[in-house]
């Protein structure tokens, strides 16, 4: 039985001026897979997932999302963005709109849904992330953990097939990390295809199907969590794991 490949990266290269930030990236993501990407800062992990929804543009290689190739063609970019959701480290909620309006914005203006329908969808996702009572508040009135959960609901409201997470808990106080990770674990259980850049190794062990270690722009190692944590092949992976797992 062939599983559908939803994301394909082939020989992807990217430069910032002279700096070679992504080097020959090859990656295949199957439908329903959860992939956790880790590595030292500056290794290109955020850049790689930001290339997938064209927040960054790659110069060489091929990126295909759900059968659509990612090129300069604006129509393709729009199509891909409608089906790929992204959660940012800094939440990036819209401060001048209420929580509910943040979530209904894209369904109303991009999917052209009637307001009532959009609000129903929004409330259902707010309940899913367990903060329906915050609907009329403004982002500034919520805690960090609550804001990030709203951000997740906002992306989910567009009904994406793929969710990208760029260090979603790195800006949170320790006591709020769990509530966000719980939402992400639930999402994973429901079968969402997820690419997560994170340092939360506990989460990785629970949820990941594949672990990817990136360093200096390359994918150094890709393996199942068991192989990755117990028996890393590369020395660099071993070094990185020893640094982050021992404090």
């Amino acid at each position: 039985m062939s599983v559908e490949q939803v994301i394909q990266l082939e020989k992807v290269n990217k430069w910032y001026d002279d700096f070679h930030v992504l080097k020959d990236i090859d990656l295949v993501v199957d439908k329903g897979q959860k992939i956790v990407i880790c590595g030292p800062s500056g290794s290109g992990k955020s850049t790689m997932i930001r290339c997938i929804n064209r927040l960054e543009a790659h110069q060489e290689g091929k990126i295909v999302v759900h059968g659509t190739e990612l090129t300069n063609d604006l129509k393709n970019i729009d199509l891909i963005r409608k089906n790929v959701g992204m959660v940012f480290q800094q939440f990036n909620l819209f401060p001048h709109l209420t929580v509910l309006e943040n979530i209904t914005l894209a369904p109303i203006w991009v999917k052209k849904l009637p307001k009532k329908e959009a609000e129903e969808i929004a409330m259902s996702y707010l309940e899913k992330v367990k903060i329906p009572e915050q609907a009329e508040k403004f982002p500034g009135q919520l805690s960090g953990g609550q804001q990030q959960r709203v951000a997740i609901a906002r992306s989910l409201a567009m009904n994406p097939d793929i969710m990208l997470f760029d260090e979603p808990t790195s800006a949170l106080d320790p006591e709020m990390i769990k509530e966000v990770l719980d939402v992400m674990i639930q999402l994973a259980d429901e079968g969402m295809t997820m690419l997560v850049v994170t340092h939360e190794m506990g989460f990785a062990k629970t949820v990941a199907d594949q672990m990817i270690f990136m360093d200096e722009g390359r994918i150094v190692e890709q393996a199942t969590p068991e192989e990755f944590f117990d028996n890393p092949k590369s020395d660099r992976t071993k070094l990185f794991l020893s640094q982050i797992l021992n404090h």
């Binding site: 927040l55 940012f88 939440f91 819209f94 894209a106 203006w109 991009v110 906002r154 567009m158």
Partner: peptide, 20 residues
């Protein structure tokens, strides 16, 4: 970040300017 969030949601340029 506001621009990025808008783009990630699929908001086109003129809508992004107008609403956000």
């Amino acid at each position: 970040g506001q621009r990025e969030a808008s783009k990630a949601l699929g908001l086109k340029n003129n809508l992004m300017m107008r609403l956000i």
